[in-house]
Design a protein around this nucleic acid. Structure first.
Lengths: 190, 190
DNA sequence: AACGTTATGGCACACTGTGCCATAAGTCGA
DNA sequence: TCGACTTATGGCACAGTGTGCCATAACGTT
């Protein structure tokens, strides 16, 4: 944890900005919402927004660091003799699982990711971190390195399953994302 | 084909702009090359560049339409009783295969796609067309629709294999991209 | 020569993202 | 209480992207 060394208290927070932004996205659409709009709605200057998020689309991934942390923890805690595909099929769906009260926003975010090109673009880069972690994990378990064909394939499979699961989820929102993700991973993992 | 109805002859072409741009990317780097630089080097105005390509990164996908066309043709020409995974494993690697003289530029493009975030972002969207076509193809062969879990997974597998194959190729440039792509697809296709 | 057609050039504009600097608002120690 | 230090904010200028709009250039046809 960070030590409080005084200083001016923050007027806002990443989560508050993200909430304001998501509401505007719902109301106006992603492209039609400018950073000025978000900053104004949050009672903060444009410059300050860019201190919390380096791009407009990044507000959609406030939880990203936490999810990635969970993913890494789950991988690290897995029994060393468990096959890597079983570990991934368990860890990945669990890591991106949301509590029910976040379901509506998760659906909205999924829709933005799959439909708005500008968001879709950023998503690929954000998800690359998941891919990197999975590739590394598989490489270690296989006793190879990160340029191993199977490890690379597994990393991309995790990424593909994440996107594919969200796509299927949008068409079948009554199902559980975690469950879909698990099925998708079993289909794709090498 | 288009009918020539007169009009002012074009000063340049998409391929010429793409060639000029790629050389500048090699020389200065992608982010350090502005559209003004490209336009000036091609002896054309900035506005004209944006009539040929809607974004700076799009010059990297001049061949995209041709590749996608080949992919669709190969899928359409496949025997109706051949399993869908075998068709894809044959068609996709064949469609993105380059003649040897384009190899250097293909490698350079692959490097840009995997290393420069701004390019990586666009790549995901450009490749979405491949994904859509594969999903549609698998859905038809399975007698389902585009919201079928397996079809969605297959579509993302094609996308993942494309990216993964390029990643492996960069680490092993002495191998054939077409061959790598084929192996990667067999690992990933459901 | 007049006309339609197509490509180009130039300009203004909104927006993103960054660097820089001044200022506000806290804490801590003398 | 005062100053030093620390952190958050605001404002501004700037480069760059991408778009809309309009004028103009260069071709063909009649």
């Amino acid at each position: 944890m960070e030590v409080d060394r005084g200083g001016r208290p923050a007027l806002t927070s990443a989560h508050e900005l993200a909430e304001v932004a998501q509401n505007l996205f719902l109301e106006l659409g992603f492209d039609q919402t400018s950073v000025d709009d978000i900053a104004a709605a949050a009672g903060v200057s444009r410059r300050t927004f860019f201190r919390y998020f380096s791009t407009k689309a990044d507000v959609l991934w406030v939880e990203s660091a936490a999810e990635i942390g969970r993913f890494q923890d789950l991988l690290a805690a897995a029994p060393p003799d468990e096959p890597y595909d079983e570990v991934l099929c368990r860890a990945a769906p669990e890591a991106l699982h949301h509590p029910p009260e976040q379901r509506t926003w998760a659906l909205h975010r999924a829709q933005l990711i799959l439909s708005v090109p500008a968001v879709q673009e950023k998503a690929a880069v954000r998800h690359a971190e998941w891919r990197r972690i999975a590739t590394e994990f598989v490489a270690v378990r296989r006793g190879s390195t990160a340029d191993d064909l199977v490890a690379i394939a597994a990393g991309h499979a995790v990424l593909a399953a994440t996107l594919g699961a969200h796509e299927y989820w949008l068409a079948h929102p009554e199902e559980e994302l975690r469950e879909i993700m698990s099925r998708m991973l079993r289909l794709l993992l090498p």
